[in-house]
Amino acid sequence: MCKVFDLGDIVEMKKTHPCGSKEWKIIRMGADIKIKCCICDRIVMIERNKFEKDMKKVVKKSETDENN
Rank of each mutant, 00 (worst) to 15 (best):
K14P: 00
S62R: 08
C2W: 06
M1D: 09
D41C: 04
S62P: 02
F51S: 00
S21V: 01
D41F: 06
K14D: 12
R28I: 02
K56G: 06
I33Q: 05
T16Y: 12
M29T: 07
S62Q: 06
S21L: 03
K22Q: 13
V4P: 03
K50A: 10
V59P: 00
D6G: 10
D41E: 11
T16P: 03
K53D: 10
M29P: 00
V4L: 14
M1W: 08
G30N: 07
F5I: 06
E52P: 00
I10G: 03
G30H: 06
N68L: 14
K50L: 15
M29E: 10
N49M: 12
I46W: 01
W24N: 04
S21Q: 09
I35L: 11
E47W: 04
M13D: 03
F5M: 07
D6K: 14
C2Y: 09
D6I: 04
I43K: 10
N67W: 10
I43H: 01
N49I: 07
P18V: 14
T64L: 06
K34A: 15
D65N: 12
S62V: 05
K22F: 07
I10C: 05
K57G: 02
K53I: 05
T16S: 11
N67I: 15
R48P: 00
R48V: 01
M1T: 08
M45T: 15
R28V: 02
C19N: 09
K56N: 14
C2R: 13
K25V: 07
K57P: 01
K50H: 11
L7G: 01
G30F: 07
G20N: 04
E23L: 12
V44L: 11
M45W: 04
P18G: 15
D6L: 12
C38D: 09
V59D: 01
T64I: 10
I46P: 00
I35Y: 07
D65I: 14
D41R: 07
E66Q: 13
G20L: 05
I33P: 02
K61A: 06
G30K: 05
P18T: 13
I35V: 15
I10R: 08
E12S: 02
K50M: 12
K60E: 13
I39H: 10
S21T: 13
K57R: 15
M13E: 07
E47N: 12
S62C: 13
E66N: 12
M13L: 15
P18S: 14
K50I: 15
E23P: 00
M29N: 03
D54F: 08
D41V: 00
D41K: 08
C38K: 08
P18R: 13
N67F: 12
D9V: 03
C19V: 09
S21W: 02
K61R: 15
D65M: 14
E66I: 15
F5C: 04
I46V: 12
K22P: 00
I46H: 01
A31C: 06
V4Y: 08
V11F: 01
